[in-house]
């Protein structure tokens, strides 16, 4: 009973903290641009508003449209259950959960893309096509990063894999995972979460026809995914398992904040890449992870 309560509590923490990250990123962007910017809690207000609003559905959609959104959201929430959060560890840990984590993200992608195609819109088809195509390279990079961590620790469970520092390849791994974070969460330079020009977008264009509570689920899921990738990146590099719980928690929170600030700075300072350049950048991310894996294989020294 206590374990169930424990799991529920941690899940609640994940769900509640997630919308904070986009708020921080937007604040950083506003600061760099010299604006005051929206409040950090803006996404919470948006979610609350959307949850109360009515839904406008396309006449073309099937009942699967809303179901797909819901399943994608649930897949992301359940993936959060597998990810350890510093000293608290993961609510659920078993051998091979790292792969389940990756495939739950894939399930979310599958459902989001199908929900987009459901509307029959050419724009959303374009977005879905881009999403699933670039995810191929992103997935190669993530699996390679898992290989690097597994070579380091000899384990296939996220809790053990993420406990020690990533060794000599840490810088490579961090760079690779950061690029994957930007790509998977559709940030600049891969995609621009702020534009509303349908032809140039990936993720935003897939959710053009969502509204009301389903759109709230999409937005919350996206922020949760961003938080998960930040936590994953931070813990891959940070020796969270070797610090005292309090220091580890502080270090984790501080580093996630740093990642959010980093994303904000990247968005302020870089322009979006041309689409034909995206695969090159993702291949670079894959190679960074691959070289991190090879460094781990050589026993952590160059």
């Amino acid at each position: 009973m206590t374990t169930a309560f424990d799991i529920l509590l941690r899940l609640l923490l994940w769900l509640l903290l997630a919308p904070l990250v986009p708020g921080i990123i937007n604040k950083v962007k506003a600061w760099v641009a010299g604006r005051r910017g929206p409040p950090v809690l803006q996404l919470y207000y948006d979610l609350a508003k959307l949850w109360r609003k009515g839904v406008v559905l396309s006449t073309a959609v099937s009942p699967g449209h809303i179901a797909g959104t819901a399943v994608a959201w649930m897949a992301l929430v359940l993936a959060a259950l597998l990810l350890p959060a510093g000293p608290a560890g993961a609510p659920l840990a078993f051998r091979g959960d790292a792969l389940l984590f990756v495939y739950l993200l894939a399930l979310a992608r599958f459902c989001t893309a199908l929900a987009a195609l459901d509307t029959g819109s050419a724009f959303e088809g374009m977005g879905a096509a881009r999403e699933v195509s670039y995810a191929v390279l992103g997935e190669a990079a993530i699996i390679t990063a898992l290989i690097a961590l597994s070579l380091q620790t000899g384990s296939v469970s996220l809790t053990t894999m993420l406990a020690p520092a990533a060794g000599a390849g840490a810088a490579l791994l961090a760079a690779g995972l950061f690029a994957v974070l930007l790509a998977e969460n559709c940030r600049v330079p891969f995609d621009d979460p702020n534009t509303h020009l349908e032809l140039t977008m990936i993720h935003e264009v897939m959710v053009l026809d969502h509204s009301g509570p389903p759109l709230a689920a999409v937005l919350h899921g996206a922020s949760l995914k961003l938080l998960m990738f930040s936590v994953l990146l931070v813990q891959a590099v940070l020796p969270a398992g070797e610090l005292s719980p309090l220091t580890a928690a502080c270090a984790l929170a501080g580093s996630v904040l740093a990642v959010a600030v980093g994303v904000g700075l990247v968005e302020s300072l870089l322009a979006r890449l041309a689409f034909r350049r995206v695969p090159l950048l993702l291949t670079t991310a894959f190679l960074l992870c691959l070289f991190a894996a090879l460094v781990s294989w050589r026993g952590g020294h160059l």
Binding site: P279, L280, T283, T284, L287, L290, F291, L294
Partner: peptide
């Protein structure tokens, strides 16, 4: 292309090691 040359270069690097 850039990606093939990058992959070939990476392969050559790994092969060299």
């Amino acid at each position: 292309g850039f990606i093939p040359s990058l992959l070939l270069g990476a392969g050559a690097t790994i092969g060299a090691v």
